[in-house]
């Protein structure tokens, strides 16, 4: 560790920070309105508590859901185009080696995962971030399948038909929510990453991975 507390390093480009918060807002709106829509005809023997849903009733929830979807998709595409074109996606998230994931996971569980370099993601982070990107792609595609089972019938067929696609949509949501829960706990454990995803900068050598 070459900790120099006066040296600030650039961690997140502005585009990444904007997209991150755009995405966080979109996901929260989509998930909360989605829960309200789920409650109108539950797939499983439970409902989401009213207090954590958005929209007030089915019609209001659908309005939110089909408004926030544009933010989610537009923001997600912007993020992807920027990250692919700049080469950042490959640089930051590739490769993901199973051995490293296991090693870093073991270290993290023992509370020993310290990173001198805040600009670098550990293997568990890489897997989690790429994983949630794929889950968001999955929730969007399965959403299209149940929104337009006739016009986009090909997608619906590929996802096993309308009723199966509904369940795919639900499980993508559940895994995204699980990611967010763990993600937010990790950020709370390493608050400096929180400053970095807002201001873009961190003090070199003192930021641990979230």
């Amino acid at each position: 560790m070459s900790a120099d507390k006066t040296t600030w390093v650039k961690v997140h480009p502005a585009m990444v920070r904007i997209c991150h918060w755009g995405n966080a807002i979109a996901i929260i709106l989509m998930v909360m309105s989605g829960w309200q829509i789920y409650n109108a005809s539950p797939l499983f023997p439970f409902r989401f508590p009213k207090a954590i849903t958005l929209g007030g009733w089915l019609g209001g929830a659908i309005q939110w859901h089909f408004a926030a979807m544009w933010l989610l998709v537009a923001n997600g595409l912007l993020y992807l185009v920027y990250n692919i074109a700049s080469g950042r996606l490959r640089m930051k998230f590739w490769p993901i080696r199973p051995g490293e994931v296991l090693h870093d996971l073991g270290q993290a569980l023992r509370g020993r995962l310290a990173h001198a370099d805040p600009t670098h993601y550990n293997a568990v982070q890489k897997l989690a971030y790429v994983g949630v990107m794929l889950l968001i792609a999955g929730v969007v595609v399965s959403g299209l399948a149940i929104w337009k089972p006739v016009q986009f019938g090909v997608i619906t067929e590929l996802l096993g038909g309308y009723e199966f696609a509904r369940r795919v949509h639900f499980f993508c949501m559940a895994l995204i929510v699980f990611f967010v829960a763990v993600h937010v706990v990790m950020v709370a454990l390493v608050p400096k990453t929180f400053i970095a995803i807002i201001t873009g900068r961190a003090k070199a050598g003192v930021v641990e991975a979230a």
Partner: peptide, 14 residues
């Protein structure tokens, strides 16, 4: 405004 919106719509639905 969120909470207001929710209550207004919930009321209407009720």
């Amino acid at each position: 405004p969120f909470a207001k919106k929710v209550t207004a719509q919930a009321d209407r639905h009720l």
